[in-house]
């Protein structure tokens, strides 16, 4: 059976769904953050798949790869800031459990 665009899009959709489930079900802030990254990476797969299946002069549409480059950069910046916030939260609350972080101010 030949590989079609549907194969890649389905994998991407399922991976996104797994990440979504993780965000909704887990309580550890760090793991919720990891699942968020998983969703982002799943979206990246869609982008690359569409670029590969939409040829421009016999080459993939490379603009998608440039966009992906920016997404990866922004994700890295986001992880750095997010982890700093989690560390700051841990310093005041001594926990990374989202169910125990339920007050705006103590």
């Amino acid at each position: 059976m030949e590989l079609t665009l549907n194969h890649f899009l389905l994998v991407s959709g399922l991976l996104f769904a797994i990440g979504l489930a993780g965000v909704l079900v887990r309580r550890n802030l760090l793991i919720i953050f990891m699942c968020l990254e998983l969703m982002l990476a799943a979206a990246n797969l869609t982008l690359v798949a569409f670029s590969r299946f939409h040829l421009v002069e016999g080459q993939p549409a490379y603009d998608a790869h440039v966009l992906l480059f920016f997404i990866i950069t922004v994700a890295a910046a986001e992880v750095a800031v997010g982890l700093a916030i989690i560390v700051a939260l841990f310093r005041t609350k001594e926990t990374t459990d989202v169910t125990k972080v339920n007050t705006m101010k103590y």
Binding site: E2, L3, T4, L5, N6, F53, L55, G58, P60
Partner: peptide, 9 residues
């Protein structure tokens, strides 16, 4: 969406 992988030039 059902497109098969096109060959590169």
């Amino acid at each position: 969406a059902g497109k098969v992988l096109p060959a590169l030039n």
